[in-house]
Simulated assay, not measured.
Amino acid sequence: MQRLYTTLVFLTLLISAGVVSGQDEPVFTNLSNGDTITDQFERTVSAKLYSFDASAGDVVTISMTQASEELDPYLVLLGSAGEVLTTDDDSGEVLYSASIQNFEIPADGDYLILATTFEAIRGVFETLRNPLSYELSLNGITTPVDGDIETVTLSATALEPGANLRLTIEQEEPIYFLQFSGFAGQSVTIDMQSEDFDTLLYLFGPDGSRISSNDDNEDSTNSRIEGFELPEDGVYLIFATSYDFTFAVEQDWTGGGEFLLTMQ
């Protein structure tokens, strides 16, 4: 079911993937077929977004293998409108490594990989004592005829300071994408409240690193990122979702509903 954007300013957000094309676009790492990259989580970053362009019918394999013994990898494959397509925890060749194997891409377009840890997928936000290194690989994709490997197009709603939006997430699209332009040193507070489900907020920086998150604010099931100081100028991406969003691929998932989102 498609969302109804009745009172919202709806925006198709072009996010630069792997190239810097101006101050109004975040920069994600874009993966091509056969790529294997080395990256790491450090300090307050325990999740990162990567992008790729694929064609309908491509059979893809995405693997995340830890180089640090303390790291338990977790992978989520997302569609460009907030669809959770599949996830994996421990299916890799190395013990505790993650691997999404032989997944058939449903349509031409842009996709996101959320690379994180088993502990951090629910928004656990702790400062890492040591960097956690990993390898991420992607195989099986072909670029659509009219595809653009330098950009990824997301369906996102634009936010401005003072925003007060009533929104809905559903099983087909359990993550609501929102974005805003910010500047270094700016303090932002983001609130997500719902009577229907246990909320979860992620905040990603312009490079795709998750820089803040919150699950239960003050022992409630609502979420709040309070007084967060933005580290740089650029466009920031918010995931507004349910605590159990990774289970939306299951038929009996009931984690969606209406919510109120505000930003100051």
Rank of each mutant, 00 (worst) to 15 (best):
D191H: 00
M192S: 13
V188T: 05
L201I: 15
D207M: 11
D215I: 13
G205A: 07
S194E: 07
D215K: 10
S209Q: 14
F197S: 13
Y202H: 12
N214W: 03
G205H: 01
N214H: 13
R210K: 13
Q193E: 15
Y202C: 08
G205P: 04
D216Q: 13
D216E: 15
S194I: 13
G205D: 11
E195N: 07
V188M: 02
D207W: 08
P206Y: 03
I190Y: 03
F204N: 08
S209K: 14
I190N: 02
V188H: 00
P206S: 09
F197M: 11
D207G: 12
G205C: 04
D198I: 12
G208C: 09
T189R: 00
L201P: 06
F197V: 14
S187L: 12
S212D: 13
D215C: 09
L201M: 11
N214I: 09
M192N: 10
S194Y: 01
R210T: 11
L201G: 04
T199K: 06
Q193D: 14
D196W: 02
D196V: 05
G205W: 01
Q193P: 03
D191V: 03
E195G: 01
D216C: 09
T189S: 02
D215S: 13
Q193G: 05
D215A: 11
T189Q: 01
L200M: 09
R210N: 13
S187W: 01
Y202I: 06
S209P: 10
S212A: 15
S187C: 06
L203H: 02
F204P: 10
D198V: 13
D191W: 00
I211G: 01
S209N: 15
I190P: 06
F204Q: 10
S187N: 14
I190F: 03
M192F: 09
D207Y: 08
L201H: 05
L200W: 01
G205I: 05
S209I: 12
D215V: 14
M192V: 14
N214G: 05
S213F: 01
S187M: 13
